[in-house]
Amino acid sequence: MTGDSGLLSPIIIGLLYGGLYAMIALGLSMVFGVMRLINLAHGDLVILGSYLSFTLWSYLGFDPIVSLILTIPVLFGLGFVIQQYLMRRAFAISAEAPLIIAFGISLILQNFNQIIWQPQSRGISTTYSMASFNIGPAQFPVSYLLDFVVALVVMLVLREFLRRTYMGRAITAASQDNKAAQLMGVNTRMIYGFAFAIAMISAAIAGTFLGMTFPFTPLSGTQFLIIAFGVVIIGGLGSLFGTFLGGLILGLVQTLAGYFFGAAAQMFFVYLAVLIVLAIRPQGLLGVKR
């Protein structure tokens, strides 16, 4: 972000940030799309992924990308258990109960993070995350580019999974009509568990790359949850491509607002953009009207 490159720098940085934001939001979007659950613990689950990668990197010397071999199964399992043993029962009680459970999980995770990893700010750095590349006169960290590319790959893999595999189609079918899905022979109880677990795979990946990009604390989950909400509202629920696009737009708004009005104004303009989309197109740019 150095040199006098005019608008080029904030635009590139905005788009690259946007990739990371999209990656964080994918799991939130999927859980809402399939189970109609606003997972208030999503940000904290992403941060849990960051801490797990951080631990494997700092104590055991794992490269953070390699650490995914362990963090993905942990979050996958956690997601499955949360859905099967907490959310499913909560859904049987009322529509609000799962929301309260999610809030509870969020509080527990924040305190858990604080006990295990202390309240100070952490970050993951590697040789490649310190490196940079040039576009014209401007310099950008390689890690930002990595965020963007990985986000794109995660989004595309998830999309193809949902479209082309039996389990993916069953998840989509159950989200569109639960009874009809059951009549096709789908064990919908199981499928919801897997849907949550798969959303948590994307959370684990997002957590690792977040840790390489931004410093994080035990309470960072809330901050990133709010960003993820913004992404999903702009992009549209139920559309993974929309979520990706929403991430890019949110990133761009943030950096451009910072460029023109200063860092203090960044988030104001982000929320303004969210508000404008809500007013004009409440289902989001690529969302499906229900």
Binding site: R163, Y166, R169, A170, T172, A173, Q176, D177, K179, A180, A181, L183, M184, G185, V186, V288
Partner: peptide
């Protein structure tokens, strides 16, 4: 069972709907 009210998977393609039928 072919349920009342048709209950297609509205946002899936015709082919994907049929493929869902062969889930078991």
């Amino acid at each position: 069972q072919i349920p009342e009210g048709r209950r297609i998977f509205p946002d899936m393609s015709v082919l994907s709907n049929l493929i869902m039928g062969s889930y078991t």
